[in-house]
C-alpha cells in the first residue's frame, strides 16, 4: 500500500477546479484510490461528490492511498495536484 500525506496549499482548498482535476486523475487507475482528512475515514478519490463533501480547506492535510501497478507515480501526481504546487 502506497501512501502520501499532503498539505493543501491552493487557496480554494480541494474544491472547484483542483477537485475536478484530482478526481479525473484518480479515475484513470484500475484499482481503488482513497482520500481521507488526517484522522478521518477514507472515501473514494474517484468520487467528486465524496471528495467535495470532505470539504478540505487551504492548509489542511489529506492522506491518499492506493495499491497496484504504478501506484507510487499516481500518488505523486495526485499529491502535486492536491498541494496546488
Amino acid at each position: 500500500m502506497a501512501e502520501r500525506t499532503v498539505s493543501v496549499a491552493s487557496e480554494v482548498g480541494l474544491h472547484a477546479r483542483p477537485a475536478a482535476t484530482f478526481v479525473q486523475t484518480a479515475a484513470k487507475a484500475p484499482y481503488d484510490v482513497t482520500i481521507a482528512k488526517a484522522g478521518g475515514s477514507p472515501v473514494s478519490a474517484k468520487s467528486i461528490l465524496s471528495v467535495l463533501a470532505l470539504d478540505v480547506r487551504q492548509g489542511e492535510s489529506i492522506v491518499i492511498r492506493a495499491e497496484g501497478d504504478g501506484a507510487e507515480e499516481l500518488l505523486d501526481e495526485l499529491a502535486k495536484i492536491a498541494s496546488g504546487s
Binding site: Q24, K46, S47, L49
Partner: peptide, 9 residues
C-alpha cells in the same frame, strides 16, 4: 457531468 458520472453515486 463529472458529478453525474460519480461512481459512488
Amino acid at each position: 457531468a463529472l458529478m453525474a458520472r460519480d461512481p459512488s453515486l
